[in-house]
Design a protein around this nucleic acid. Structure first.
Length: 902
RNA sequence: GGACCUUUAGCUCAGUUGGUUAGAGCGUUUCCUUGACAUGGAAAAGGUCACUGGUUCGAGUCCAGUAAGGUCCACCA
């Protein structure tokens, strides 16, 4: 067996094992009816994406779930892939073209789309390669892409089906228009941001009463040329006499526009009068419809004012136009005043510029299965973790609006609608809607728009598994793996993705079957957002996000995974802290060296299975520490189990950390050193170490897959050619059953004795340190103890001497004048009476006495409280009494020690 | 305007259904290169659990309110 080196070198080990896993197709998801399925579909990253800390967290959690399920005996399948990300990808490629001073229009649609595909093949999907570096155990043979021919066909099929079922319609409506991307956006892609601007007070002169004005307040004077009315509230007495009269539009093409009454106007705001510009405001548009007003669009799609804005403003960009309009108003004497004003403005999520409300023809989707989607979560068929996100989800569904699914882009799924050449496009008589198009294509032209990216990714959980083609579904194991088990994602895409996937699954999968068969996943785990030290979101533009690949190079993939999980509490945002990643690396090193020590301590016995290790245990030779470490091992196994069922990964990591580092390394391995020197106890002690290490590696493997695989192999736990994932993880009760079968019953009193020994040891070291003897290993101690206390000490004496760094500990009936400490195993004296600073020792003892006296007072007060004694549960009262007795005994002993010092 | 989250040691965070003297990691101080590990070991210092009330025998934990910070939703020009 190869020797374990002094320090753990992550890089080589990681490369070696990942290659071996791929070679063996260890991550292949196979249909196996004898086992339970466990499946995850990856939230497909943008094909343009590179690995961020968010991806690290998200995918580490998915990998943890998948690997744990594998160890529990499930047949697992983690489906990877990427999203074509319409706007983002098109923008990236257009940016490349701009370097060559070209635009997509220089190429034309077909050539441009070819360019995008070229780009994708060369540079797209880097992130999937990066996920391998992280250790992600995806079934790479299933890698999907939302623009794959098969996937695309399914997207179009869904469009056609929804159209047939009456959920899709075409209509001219106000949409959120991005003047940079030149496309419509859904409401979800608009981010509201407060903007500091100006509120202009503008006056409109009445046509038949020169000199009389109506004032309105507006933030957008450049749209005044598009004004078609002034609206007031019908009950507003200030304007009762002007309703129906006309005012002059102060700038732009001269026009007389009516004063109308509409209840949508807020009497309290501003002057109570509102300018109506139906082309550039959603509310205005609705008022315009009610009053049959014309629509005057003064903006070009790119946000530049057009000729309808008048000669002065024609061709001026919208923000420059705003200032210029104000000047024109001033010149016309129509600007009353202006004031600084902050209001919320919708921004395009992608381009980060204010969107324009714009009246355009678009395709809309009325969502299917809204009520059932609510029920799925409300009734617990789908469980959100943390649960509180379900409120956000339900609230959105309560107020859901139709979804604008068409985008004026070239990169994406072109909408499968054809219009009869020369026909009126708004007349459905002239439409052909099908996946494959009309039989006589020469007579038709296809819709230019493509679908919103989310209108393809909402099918991800089933379109990646061959749906709706029976043969492909069979091959993908659809029946077996759907619904998927857990979705791991961020709460920021509850609306974009999670809710829509639920509706899509309910609408399309296994129609007529019960809801639990149609939902796309059973659990949804929402991660937090990773923030920097100042609490800011990590983002490319701020440059505050470390490159995960750098972190992998520095700390190893395992170190990164362990570190990030340890700072990621459930559902809370995460303050990134590189120290914790370093802590992850250090933990790996600790694990490595503990295994190294095991290897150096003696030949491995038969480690090939749990049973063979159990067979090597010798219950008759178990001492207190042996009982205690197995007790802690079982308890930790149980705790990790609980953490997984509660999705508390950082708690699992903490439990494993403290068990392994504190209980095993700091204590058990240390006491082992004495036991392994005795031929009689050595074999049993090594068997126990082998048992602990085996179980620990299994429990840790989902979190740190590489190093555990390496150590599993080095310590001979697996047969050659097998992986740690081929083993089964026994739970705590299975472990207990196996050990019972071996005749081992853990002894509670022995386990408690170890707790006393630990306290004793700590106090002995502290006593040495207080007298500047911490580094000495030849110190002599005396102890005054009861027979029971001494019995515990005596049986563990060899270990105790070693651990305390003592030459001897001898029992005395009384000791005078030596520094002492009261321990659970008797009073311990340092044999240095002659050199001791009596005054300092008295101060120290006095301080301890004061403390215990305070505690006694507290305990007595509680027990003296009639209400406590009569109302608290007996166990609590009993505990308090026992505690009081112990405290009093300690006080008596401290007083005696003080007295003996004079 | 509505909903939600957070506030515990210098820093980042645990703290399960209320129950001994509130914990961990990092950082700090002192000591230690003893044959697994200095990516380590030992000891120690460090907290009015944001604030105010309430419920209770008992509150970091439950309730109400206040303050600060954050997130999401919402068509007031």
């Amino acid at each position: 067996m190869p020797e374990i080196t002094k320090s753990y070198e992550a890089r080589d080990v990681e490369q070696k094992w990942y290659a071996a896993w791929l070679e063996a197709k260890a991550f292949r998801g196979e249909v196996d009816p004898s086992r339970a399925p466990y499946s995850i579909v990856i939230p497909p990253p943008n094909v343009t994406g590179v690995l961020t800390m968010g991806h690290v967290l998200n995918n580490t959690i998915q990998d943890i779930l998948i690997r744990r399920a594998r160890l529990e005996g499930c047949s697992t399948m983690w489906l990877p892939g990427t999203d074509h990300a319409g706007i983002a990808t098109q923008t990236v490629v257009e940016r490349e073209l701009r370097k060559q001073k070209k635009t997509r229009h220089d190429f034309g649609r077909e050539k441009f789309v070819e360019k995008v595909w070229e780009w994708r093949h060369e540079k797209g999907g880097i992130i999937l390669e990066q996920l391998r570096r992280l250790g992600a155990s995806c079934d790479w043979d299933r890698t999907a892409f939302t623009m794959d021919p098969g996937y695309s066909k399914r997207v179009l099929h869904v469009f056609v089906e929804l159209f047939k079922r009456g959920y899709i319609y075409r209509g001219k409506r106000m949409v959120n228009w991005c003047p940079v991307s030149l496309t419509a956006l859904s409401d979800e892609e608009v981010i509201m941001k407060p903007v500091n601007g100006t509120l202009y007070r503008v006056r409109y002169e009445l046509v038949d009463q020169p000199g009389r004005f109506i004032e309105v307040k507006t933030t957008r004077p450049e749209t005044i040329p598009g004004d078609v009315a002034i609206a007031v509230h019908p009950d507003d007495p200030r304007y009762a006499d002007v309703i129906g009269k006309k005012v002059r539009r102060p700038i732009g093409p001269a026009a007389e526009i009516p004063i109308i009454a509409d209840t949508a106007v807020d009497k309290e705001f501003g002057s109570g009068a509102l300018k109506i510009t139906p082309a550039h405001d959603k509310v205005d548009y609705e008022i315009g419809l009610r009053h049959k007003l014309p629509v005057i669009d003064v903006l070009k799609p790119n946000g530049v004012l057009n000729e309808l804005a008048g000669p002065e403003l024609d061709g001026v960009e919208r923000f420059a136009g705003r200032k210029q309009a104000a000047e024109l108003l001033k010149a016309a004497g129509a600007l009353v005043d202006e004031e600084a004003y902050s209001n919320n403005v919708g921004f395009s999520e992608r381009a980060d510029v204010p969107i324009e409300p714009r009246l355009t023809e678009q395709w809309w989707l009325r969502y299917p299965k809204i009520e059932e989607a609510k029920a799925a979560v409300r009734d617990g068929h789908i469980r959100f973790h943390p649960e509180r996100w379900s409120k956000v989800y339900l609230h959105w569904l309560e107020n859901i609006q139709d979804w604008c699914i068409s985008r004026q882009l070239w990169w994406g799924h072109r909408i499968p609608v054809w219009y009869r050449k020369g026909g009126d496009r708004s007349d459905p008589q002239n439409w052909h809607v099908s996946v494959d198009g009309p039989a006589d294509p020469q007579n038709w032209e296809q819709e230019e728009d493509v679908l919103d990216t989310w209108a393809s990714s909402w099918l991800w959980p089933f379109a990646t598994m061959g749906w709706p083609d029976e043969a492909e579904m069979k091959q993908a194991g659809f029946d077996y793996f759907y619904p998927t088990s857990t979705l791991v994602t961020g709460p920021d895409i509850i609306f974009f993705w999670v809710a829509r996937m639920i509706m899509a699954g309910l609408e399309f999968v296994r129609p007529g079957e019960p809801i639990e068969r149609r939902i796309p996943f059973r659990d949804v785990y929402f991660t937090g957002i990773i923030r920097d030290q100042q609490g800011r979101k990590m983002s490319k533009s701020l440059g505050n996000s470390p490159d995960p690949l750098d972190l992998i190079a520095k700390y190893g993939a395992d170190g990164l995974r362990f570190g990030i999980i340890s700072i990621a509490p459930q559902g809370q945002d995460i303050r990134f802290n590189e120290d914790r990643i370093e802590g992850g690396k250090n933990f790996c090193n600790k694990l490595w060296n503990a295994c190294r020590f095991r290897q150096m301590s003696g030949e491995a016995g038969d480690n090939s299975s749990l049973a063979t290790i159990m067979a090597r245990l010798e219950p008759a030779k178990f001492d207190a520490d042996d009982h205690a470490i197995l007790d802690r091992l079982f308890a930790t196994t149980r705790e990790v189990d609980r953490c997984f069922s509660a999705f508390e990964f950082s708690a699992a990591v903490q439990a494993l950390y403290s068990f392994f580092w504190n209980d095993f390394c700091d204590w058990y391995v240390e006491v082992s050193k004495a036991k392994m020197q005795a031929a009689d106890t050595k074999a049993n002690c090594l068997a126990i170490q082998d048992l602990v290490l085996r179980q620990t590696l299994l429990l840790l493997h989902p979190f740190i897959p590489f190093i555990t695989e390496e150590l599993w192999s080095l310590l001979g736990y697996g047969a050659p050619g097998t992986f740690i994932q081929d083993a089964r993880l026994d739970n705590a009760s299975q472990l207990a059953t196996s050990s019972h079968a071996r005749g081992l019953v853990l002894d509670r009193s022995q386990i408690e004795a170890v707790e006393s020994l630990k306290v004793f040891m700590s106090q002995a070291r502290a006593l040495k340190a207080e007298h500047n003897l911490a580094s000495r290993r030849d110190v002599k101690f005396f102890v005054t103890a009861t027979d029971a206390q001494w019995a515990t000490l005596e049986t563990n004496l060899a270990k105790a001497l070693r651990m305390a760094g003592a030459a001897e500990i001898t029992r005395r009936t009384s000791v005078e004048g030596a520094p002492a400490v009261v321990t659970p195993l008797g009073t311990l004296y340092l044999d240095l009476a002659s050199t001791v600073d009596v005054a300092a020792e008295k101060v120290r003892l006095k301080k301890e006495l004061d403390q215990i006296t305070k505690h006694i007072a507290g305990t007595e007060a509680r027990l003296g409280n009639e209400a406590f004694v009569s109302k608290a549960p007996p166990a609590v009262i009993e505990g308090a009494r026992k505690q009081l007795a112990e405290q009093q005994a300690k006080r008596t002993e401290l007083e005696r020690l003080l007295q003996s010092l004079g």
